[in-house]
Each structure stands twice: as structure tokens, then as C-alpha cells.
């Protein structure tokens, strides 16, 4: 099996910041808006380099989304930045009417997604955002797995014409994808080849999936591992092909099992190639305070949990 090396753990939000900094230099139409979380979103460098293109809107997310929608008229490409909770649930109708239905070229960039936000607790840990966003017609939904991929995705969405939701997180996680990768929206990344079980993962769970594949390999089980960075549009062919090869699927995500990647995969398979599937995801619950590692363990969002679900689904074949 292929070996993936962690070249040094970093937070995915810093990947966003690095991508935005590059965009500032290469694309004069890119503007950035932030709702009082400039440091948390790693937007400081863009702000310092291009003060005229940085808009501090204060703690007023609804206005931020509306401003961004309006700024597209005349050719700007607005990137909005705040926590995932305030990027989606708080402003759902603003996104629905002023961005999605109006077809505006706004990039909604959301940090601190999921339970790994940690100690701040459930008020800030949104586990429903992927579902909210993927239900909006025309919305592209991306959830990246590490620093390098988040940086590449940030640059790629500027070149894509249409509304995008880009989801990333707070904690430092393994950085293992190529430094100067080409990010292709809607294209799955095949990380491991195997025939016994498929693990289809997104975001922070991708590294955990690779770790799970190693442990399964030690037990004589070979694993197909696919990184789905784009939840919508979903690379259905990659999922169907893997299901045909292995005959069983585990999906893994830092999100509620209602509305997330797992449901999109299940719908695809139900329609094209019915396959036994198990879900590594939160089980229709809110989160709580704790360290990211403690929370991932308690809510079953790690390599250990993926291995358990893989063995369970193999038995169902």
C-alpha cells in the first residue's frame, strides 16, 4: 500500500489564509470580508497587503453575505470569512436568496467547522452545515482535508464562476497531500487501492481513514480509500466504481450522519449500485466542550471507529 507522510501538522484554516494571500497577489478582483474573526480565519496577511480590498464588517454576518452578493455586481470575487456556524445556519436565508438563487459569485469560507472546534462547545460546533449548503441549488460544497489541499482549493474556487461553500477547521492536523497540487472541483482523490472495503472520507477524517487502512492491512484486509473533498457536485463515478470493486462502504465525516457526505453516498449507491454502508459521523446530536482529540474519540470520529465500522460492513457483504 502507498505510504503518506505527515510533513508537519498544520491547521486547515492556515491553508485558507495562505491561499487567500496568493490570490491577493494574483487576482485583483478578489476581495475579502470578515465578521470580526480576522485572526481566527488567518486573513491578516491579505488585510495587510490589500487594505483597500479587505472589508471588516463587524459582528454582522447577515450584512456580510448581502454585501458580498452586491459586490459581485461589477466583477469582484468576494470571499467571506467567519466560523462555519455563523457562515451557514445564522445566514441561511441571506445565502439562499441573495447568493444561491441570485446566482452570485460569492465564496463562503468557513473555519472552525465540526466538533474539533473543541472547548467552545456546541454553540459553535456546527455539525449540520454540509447538509444546509448542499441542499441549495447551484451551490458547490467543498470540505478539505489538510493545509495543502485547503490552500489549493482556495485558489481553485476563485477561478470557478458560481457560489461556493468552503469548509475547513481549527486544529492542527496531518499535512500529507502534495504541496503544489492541482485542485479539481468535483473530482475524488484515490488514496489507496484495495478490494475488501471502501472508505470514503472527507475533511479531517481523511487522515484517520488512511490510518484505519494501515490497521486493517495489518489484519489482512485491503482497503480502497477515497478522499471526497467536493461533497457537491459529488464524484459519483468514483464511488460507484469503488463499490463495485469492494462490495461494501464506510463513509467518514465530521458532521451529522443526517445530511452529510454519508447520505450523498448512500443516495448515489441506492440509485446506481446498492451496497452495504456504515456511517462514521455524529449521530443526530450536538457536541460539547473538550479537546479535539477527546471529542473525536467520544463521538466516534477517528481511525479506531473507522476500523470497527469497516469490519462490521465487511461482515454484511
Amino acid at each position: 500500500m502507498k505510504t503518506y507522510e505527515n510533513t508537519g501538522s498544520k491547521d486547515t484554516r492556515s491553508g485558507f489564509g495562505a491561499g487567500l494571500t496568493e490570490l491577493g497577489k494574483t487576482n485583483p478582483n478578489v476581495v475579502a470580508l470578515c465578521a470580526d474573526l480576522t485572526g481566527s480565519l488567518k486573513m491578516d496577511e491579505f488585510k495587510a497587503n490589500h487594505p483597500e480590498r479587505f472589508f471588516q464588517v463587524g459582528i454582522a454576518e447577515a450584512n456580510m453575505i448581502g454585501l458580498a452578493a452586491g459586490m459581485t455586481i461589477g466583477g469582484k470575487i468576494p470571499f467571506t470569512g467567519t466560523f462555519a456556524n455563523f457562515s451557514t445556519g445564522r445566514v441561511y436565508d441571506q445565502i439562499r436568496q441573495s447568493v444561491a438563487y441570485s446566482g452570485k459569485n460569492v465564496k463562503i469560507c468557513a473555519s472552525h467547522a465540526g466538533i474539533t472546534l473543541g472547548e467552545d462547545g456546541a454553540t459553535h460546533q456546527i455539525l449540520e452545515d454540509l447538509g444546509l449548503m448542499k441542499m441549495l441549488p447551484g451551490m458547490t460544497v467543498i470540505n478539505t482535508c489538510d493545509f495543502n489541499q485547503t490552500k489549493a482549493a482556495t485558489k481553485a474556487i476563485a477561478a470557478h464562476n458560481g457560489p461556493v461553500y468552503l469548509r475547513f477547521g481549527r486544529p492542527k492536523v496531518a499535512n500529507f497531500t502534495p504541496e503544489n497540487q492541482t485542485f479539481e472541483i468535483g473530482k475524488a482523490v484515490h488514496l489507496q487501492e484495495g478490494t475488501d472495503v471502501s472508505i470514503i472520507a472527507t475533511g479531517h477524517l481523511v487522515w484517520e481513514a488512511l490510518e484505519a487502512a494501515k490497521r486493517l492491512h495489518e489484519k489482512g484486509i485491503t482497503t480502497d480509500v477515497i478522499n471526497i473533498h467536493t461533497i457537491k457536485p459529488l464524484d459519483e463515478a468514483a464511488i460507484i466504481n469503488s463499490a463495485k470493486k469492494t462490495g461494501c462502504i464506510v463513509t467518514a465525516e465530521e458532521h451529522n450522519f443526517l445530511g452529510g457526505l454519508g447520505e450523498s453516498v448512500a443516495r448515489t449507491l441506492a440509485q446506481h449500485h446498492p451496497t452495504p454502508q456504515e456511517f462514521v459521523a455524529t449521530q443526530d446530536t450536538f457536541g460539547e466542550s473538550g479537546t479535539p482529540a477527546e471529542l473525536m474519540e467520544k463521538y466516534g470520529l477517528n481511525a479506531k471507529s473507522i476500523v470497527e465500522k469497516a469490519e462490521k460492513v465487511i461482515a454484511r457483504k
Binding site: 472589508f55 447577515a62 450584512n63 456580510m64 453575505i65 448581502g66 454585501l67 458580498a68 452578493a69 452586491g70 459586490m71 459581485t72 455586481i73 461589477g74 468576494p78 441571506q94 441573495s98
Partner: peptide, 8 residues
């Protein structure tokens, strides 16, 4: 908000 964004 939209009108202000367009004005910006």
C-alpha cells in the same frame, strides 16, 4: 446590504 455592496 446588496445595494451597499454594489456601491462599494
Amino acid at each position: 446590504s446588496v445595494a451597499i455592496g454594489a456601491a462599494l
